[in-house]
Design a protein around this nucleic acid. Sequence first.
DNA 1: ACCTGAACACCGTTCAAGT
DNA 2: ACCTGAACACCGTTCAAGT
Lengths: 191, 191
Amino acid sequence: MAQVRPMRADARRNYERLLKVAVEAFAEHGEGASLDDIAKRAGVGSGTLYRHFPTRQALLEAAYLDRIEALAARADTLAAERPPGEALGEWLYELGVGMIRMRGLRALLGPAVTEGDAAVATACGDSVRNAADRLVRAARQEGTLRPDVEPMDVLRLAHGVTTASELADAEGRQIRRYLGLLMEGLGPRDR
Amino acid sequence: MAQVRPMRADARRNYERLLKVAVEAFAEHGEGASLDDIAKRAGVGSGTLYRHFPTRQALLEAAYLDRIEALAARADTLAAERPPGEALGEWLYELGVGMIRMRGLRALLGPAVTEGDAAVATACGDSVRNAADRLVRAARQEGTLRPDVEPMDVLRLAHGVTTASELADAEGRQIRRYLGLLMEGLGPRDR
DNA sequence: ACCTGAACACCGTTCAAGT
DNA sequence: ACCTGAACACCGTTCAAGT
């Protein structure tokens, strides 16, 4: 692994300003927020934005990296505090609430759960997939999750249910209920 | 209701060419297909497209109206042929397959299941909601569907599950399985 | 009554020129 | 080494001029 050379002072400053403005812009206008506008609001030329973040996905990833890591850490906390099935359900709920509150997070997580043969190995994707892996494995062992359901299935379905609850209302008030119905379906067969 | 005056011959011709090209373009490039390109390919000025279809939604609706009506009719056929729960499941499956095959149909149906206090009363939306209404009511009566689940909930969740299966792979090979898990969750509580 | 296409605004992306 | 901003391509939308 190449040692990452420290950025020049002005580059570092621009990088940080861009991230700060990007989070605001994504919150305001969703994942489609104008990149040109972000550059302008950050007071840099558009070329500078592209230099630091060659694609929209790269910018999204950098902007939400810390919240993704917080979510991953939260998975461990929940796993330690509650029985596996409950931990998984609560984690998915918090993930869903995050995707609704921080518009742009969902756009970032979509590709991470897509069967993209390559190019999906992003840092964010790995964090989320690993967290889901741990929770799903435990719930399966406990017997509260069907054995044929994979972590990726759970992530995709949670993503879909979040979308569904956003269709109900923009604030996602149905998310808990919809996730409950999903979890019921993911439980062991019993008839 | 105002009597709809017949279109002038050239207008009618343009209208139809636009629809035909639009279906192709949406299939090829998804809901975001370039309107300018559609006009060009249909051999009309861009103004003509806007005259006939003031918004992208209006074009989507006109393009898919017949398939929506076929789906609504299909609901009645299924209701006559199978027990209610099965009819609902199969109908949702066919709806999902349609949304994956005809990219653009999902974009059309999204707003139709959104809690938009107004402006949602489109012809397409009404057809789909009515069909879902009949199937859901019957399944509830039969006892294979939880009584607290509304038709709109079912439509939204099916929409979400379809999105989830498209995340798995572009052809939606998981849709049957994912819908099965959802239907399990929508069944009566039994423990 | 309907159509055309130029005009305008906006956005993404690249790259030559600057420091 | 990094930044700037003009330049280009593309798209949505409107509207004056045409038939």
